[in-house]
Amino acid sequence: MRPFEYVRPTTVGEATDFLREHGDDALVVAGGTAAVVMMTLGVLRPDYVVDVGFIPELGPELDGSRSGGAGLRLGALTTVRSIERDPAIAGAYGLLADAASQVANVRVRNRATVGGSVCYGEPQTDLPPALIAMGASATIAASTGVRTVPLAGFFEGPYETVLQAGELLTEITVPLPEPGTFGCHAKFTVGSPENKPVANASVLVRTDEAGRCVEARIVMGAVGPVPVVAEAAAALLAGEVPDAKLIAEVAARAADATDPQDDLRGPVWYKRRIAAVLVERALSCALRKAGNGTR
């Protein structure tokens, strides 16, 4: 690994002050599961590493006070593993727990953070589609102030986000879903499960007492430079009690919205086909949960 200098801020202010001076040459490291590996491989060669893992404000632990009625607040250091296991998330935010449980392997989930998974901007990651489907926003601090960006507009391309040098993501907020909202995440990988997926899909639905779809969101990962939000496909569900034919139609329309690339995980036609299958699976799963009334 190329040598670098190391700083360990203990407040967000210290971190953003340092990033204001050195943001262009610095790499922010939280869990390290991506950053340390990318430095070992020589892909990332920063002059400075800013270890934000010792900043209490970034909330390494979830607690009840963070998930009040207004929604869920996830400090940037919240681990993927705690999203998977926290009882406060399993209920109304079950889609997040479902997506978190499918990230890489348990060793990675123990260290990887929600802030890191989002800031890394990797198109194949599981959490961003789920967070976008749930309408999450990122709180971003800089020495000049704080701004909030909806995650739907956060990603700009593979490994590219709206984050500017000098900025630090401090928190992800997720609005409390309306009662009767259920979601599922599905992914498919070739080879070992910790490989990057061919595609993944997060689906969130809300149904009324008659089983009619009131609201639906479909977001797919790994099939475009950024997570793909399939609005036209989701709109087909409005007011309908979905049967197998409609679910297949929605899945096909969602796949039309994708923009995958040929790579070692498959050619374009294959990824589109897989994306449709995953939307079908996640949508069926969400509707099943809605029918049972269990999250």
């Binding site: 190391y6 490291v29 390290g32 599961t33 340390v36 590996v37 070992t40 491989l41 590493v49 270890d51 593993r81 890489a104 392997n105 348990v106 060793r107 990675v108 123990n110 260290r111 070992s192 910790e194």
Partner: peptide, 23 residues
Amino acid sequence: HSGICGACTVLLDGAAVSSCSLL
């Protein structure tokens, strides 16, 4: 050296982690 294989697993405060992916 990429957090995939698990040969370098250690327990960090009781949790299994890849020691290769951690400074």
